[in-house]
Design a protein around this nucleic acid. Structure first.
Lengths: 215, 215
DNA sequence: CCTAACTTACTAACCAGTTGGTTAAAACAA
DNA sequence: TTGTTTTAACCAACTGGTTAGTAAGTTAGG
């Protein structure tokens, strides 16, 4: 099939996608330079076109690959958890972990949201819907078991995911903000996920029986 | 002073800033074309340089003007509210209102977060710190009055703001997502703010009986 | 000698920023 | 009043650097 192999199987394509993810994440689609991506991948621009295609194809490929990995981690980790609360916390942990395991997905998604998802391919939407369905099911289980109060699942999902993604991505800005406001800004990803979990799990709890403090 | 006046005082500059806000919001800084902005403002590109300066100055001017308006609305509306809970809900309402009153700020801020705020001028950070201080104070009052449990104010602030901004900005994507997942996605800005308020206010409530999660 | 993998060198378009002007209101001079 | 100068406001056309994408040829494994 292939007369001349690279160092290993489809090494070039992987390196291209990795480099592209990095660049797209930090400067966005229009800000990204194909030459720059090629150089970081240690190849020539023409080879990038040979292996992947044009800039849009490259972007789509990065998106799909990146969300695929995220979705896999997500389903895997939530499967282990038992209670709905634990599962929800797992979702948050998994998103926070993207901060290290897959640090390019979050900035890319934030940009997509900012532009109304104009360039989001349907392929991507389907995978995002997969994430939503997972959360929706967890929320549904919680309501059924009487531990969560019923809420609009889509809004709750988006709040949850938006909150944790925003927290993770805002780290550099939080650092500058904290300096101005004089507060601590050094938080681990775990702390971010725990904080969000505390707020949301408590926010979703059914009203406890004793001491009804009406609001 | 000015031999020839436009239709009214500094009309051109305002039109330029309005057009620029629109374009920067939808395609970002690098995606924005100066010619495009000029055309939308109904003037020539050279006039844009004459009135405002180069692309970076233009961007900074848009940022400052936009956040200035947002901050004004925010302080005004929270001042009216009495209880910490009501004040917090006011903050959410004010952010949600940005969706209509100032629809470009949220996408622009999401992009800034995505890029780590690399292009955020200090002038802008100072104003963001102003918003934070306001929220921090509301949270502090709530804790003092015994209605909020103590949390990290910066993280709570960012969660809150991130959540509502994400909800507002994600509307187009939610619409596509809802179509795939078969759920309702038509929510008014008020519904978004109320949903977030419900979750967070309940999440911040003091425990009726200590049932501590971890951390 | 065929073909996947790779390269160099190009081009066509794009785009931020500039140049070198025009216009007309207004301030000034006689 | 009337001619002269100044200046804010405006523009078409250009410049020069950049960048997505391509063409045409090279190398080496099978």
């Amino acid at each position: 099939m292939s007369p001349r192999k690279s160092i290993d199987e489809s090494d070039a394509r992987d390196r291209i996608l990795a480099a592209a993810a990095e660049v797209f994440a930090s400067v966005g689609f229009t800000g990204a330079r194909v030459d720059d991506i090629a150089e970081r991948a240690g190849i020539n621009k023409a080879m990038l076109y040979y292996h992947v295609g044009d800039k849009e194809r490259l972007y789509a490929a990065v998106l799909i690959k990146t969300v695929e990995r995220g979705l896999a981690t997500l389903t895997e980790s939530t499967a282990k958890a038992q209670t709905p609360s634990a599962k929800l916390q797992c979702v948050l942990d998994a998103f926070a972990d993207l901060g290290t395991s897959n640090p390019h997905l979050i900035p890319i998604m934030l940009r997509e949201v900012a532009s109304g998802g104009a360039t989001l391919p349907d392929e991507m939407l389907v995978r995002m819907a997969g994430v939503f369905r997972l959360v929706q099911q967890v929320l549904g289980e919680g309501v059924e078991e009487g531990v969560f109060r019923p809420t609009d699942p889509l809004l709750t999902h988006v709040s949850l995911v938006g909150s944790i993604m925003f927290l993770v991505a805002s780290q550099p800005i939080r650092a500058r903000l904290g300096k101005i406001a004089g507060v601590n800004t050094q938080h681990s990803l775990r702390e971010l996920a725990d904080h969000t979990g505390n707020l949301f799990l408590k926010g979703l709890e059914v009203e406890p029986q004793p001491k009804r403090r009406k609001k």
